[in-house]
């Protein structure tokens, strides 16, 4: 039964992707890409990846859509009418041929869900076996993310931070300073005049932030962790900015604080690693953080997840405000 469901959802993905490419209005393309992300999250959930589904739903459907809309406020929203070109036809033929080649090659691949596939025979069984012993937290994904492959995650956090700094540099051109100013915007673009969305949104914001904190600190026991929590909290504060206007949101969390959060979170991660070295262990080997190695691992994972959450919240909000400040 679940097979029918997953086939249906996978087919919908392809249909939505074609609709995104075909639509000439960029607003509808952005909305369709939000639907695409939600469908993708459903597919991930069916494929047993609860953590990834949560991330995709918060990041892809929430933050990404807001950023694209923010960019569309600064660019034309209609694609120029396309002429039928020979180049397009040639591209279409080429991609169809590559698609057929990939489909043909898939016959040599192990079937989806095959427990004997090479990917399941390598390190994965070791992770599943050793996590209860070495780290003793239920969520293996968090354990691998935070401890076993902590180097990777450290790198990813710094990639996110670098991208945020890049956006700030690009969008601060033509005005003094890197950060958006806290001056009152000329046109207050809030939803204050729309009574019902305004009231309902204000009721929802505390619950969104609370849910973000739950996801952050429950990440060791269930699906969740710093990346998801960062995206959810950022989405809640972006909702606040949309409801009350840019100025009010910047008054609550000034740009300096946001950049501080991003850098502070990334530094916290790095310093946990350095602290492990100073205490006589390897870089990011949390076992030395407490007398009992298992407790040390748990402390380390909670700390670095906190760092990831702060860094992701700060970076996403800085990016959002950079786009919004450019509009004025």
């Amino acid at each position: 039964m679940i097979v029918v469901f997953s086939l249906f959802l996978l087919s919908l993905l392809v249909v939505t992707a074609i609709a995104i490419v075909r639509s000439e209005n960029l607003f509808s393309a952005v909305m369709l890409s939000g639907i695409f992300s939600l469908l993708m999250a459903l597919n991930f959930f069916i494929l047993d990846a609860a953590d990834v589904a949560l991330t995709e739903a918060a990041v892809g459907a929430g933050v990404s859509t807001v950023l694209l809309l923010g960019a569309l406020a600064l660019t034309p929203t209609e694609e120029r009418r396309r002429k039928r070109e020979r180049k397009v036809a040639a591209t279409l033929v080429t991609v169809t041929m590559i698609f057929l080649a990939i489909s043909y090659a898939s016959f040599d691949q192990p079937r989806i869900g095959d427990p004997d596939a090479p990917v399941h025979r390598h390190v994965a069984p070791w992770y599943l076996e050793q996590t209860p012993e070495l780290i003793d937290i239920p969520n293996v994904v968090t354990a691998v993310l935070g401890s076993f492959r902590g180097y990777d995650t450290l790198g990813e956090v710094y990639v996110v931070l670098t991208a945020g700094i890049g956006v700030l540099f690009l969008l601060s051109a033509g005005r003094p300073g890197l950060l958006p100013h806290r001056r009152e915007p000329r046109i207050e673009s809030s939803l204050k005049s729309h009574l019902i969305p305004h009231v309902v949104g204000r009721v929802l914001i505390p619950f969104i932030v609370l849910f973000g904190l739950y996801v952050q600190f429950h990440g060791e026991y269930g699906p969740g962790g710093g990346f998801q929590a960062g995206a959810i909290i950022a989405a809640g504060i972006i909702l606040f900015a949309l409801l009350e206007g840019e100025g009010a949101a910047l008054k609550v969390l000034p740009p300096r604080v946001l950049v501080g959060l991003a850098i502070g979170g990334a530094l916290l991660y790095l310093l946990v690693g350095v602290a492990c070295m100073l205490l006589g262990g390897n870089f990011l080997d949390y076992s030395v953080l407490a007398a009992d190695p298992v407790t040390g691992q748990q402390i380390g994972i909670i700390l670095i997840e906190l760092g990831v959450g702060l860094a992701v919240t700060g970076t996403l909000l800085s990016i959002f405000h950079a786009f919004a400040a450019r509009e004025q």
């Binding site: 990834v52 995709e56 990041v59 990404s64 994965a124 992770y127 990777d152 995650t153 990639v159 996403l316």
Partner: peptide
């Protein structure tokens, strides 16, 4: 199910949105 690919993709999604934001800034 195998946790390792899930970890790789979890971080890749957040990196993906950051690169998209960078691209959008260049477009603007």
């Amino acid at each position: 199910s195998n946790p390792l690919p899930q970890v790789l993709i979890l971080t890749a999604i957040v990196v993906g949105i950051s690169t998209t934001a960078l691209g959008l800034a260049i477009v603007v």
